[in-house]
């Protein structure tokens, strides 16, 4: 494949970008009450870590980081499948996906 870009940016930009994305994901997990949106915010945090790993791998010239990102994607796919199955099962029992309904384990 041909080179897509000819000039590369400083790596600290990618660090800042992934930090901002991770913080947005944390914010969403903290204040949203819908379980599907919380799952999506977890995906956002996983993706910010992926950007960080890919940037370190690309700048260090070592492709092992990208293999790790591949495995993270695999685990994220499995996690979303199981999480959505759990959500469907919860929705069948409580008729909502609000996490405030599921407070029986809260002390």
């Amino acid at each position: 494949m041909e080179q897509v870009i000819q000039h590369s940016n400083p790596q600290s930009w990618y660090l800042v970008l992934s930090t901002i994305l991770f913080s947005i994901g944390v914010m969403g997990v903290l204040f949203r009450r819908n379980a599907i949106i919380i799952l999506m915010c977890i995906e956002l945090m996983l993706n910010s870590v992926n950007i960080l790993l890919v940037s370190f791998s690309a700048y260090a010239g070592n492709s092992e980081g990208q293999v790790f990102v591949f495995f993270i994607m695999v685990v994220a796919a499995a996690e979303v499948a199981v999480g959505l199955a759990l959500l469907v099962s919860i929705f069948r029992n409580t008729a909502s996906t609000d996490i405030n309904v599921l407070s029986k384990l809260k002390w």
């Binding site: 990618y14 890919v54 990208q66």
Partner: peptide, 11 residues
């Protein structure tokens, strides 16, 4: 798009 800019085309 960010991955493409980092030359990580497979990913």
């Amino acid at each position: 798009g960010h991955y493409v800019m980092l030359n990580a085309q497979f990913l």
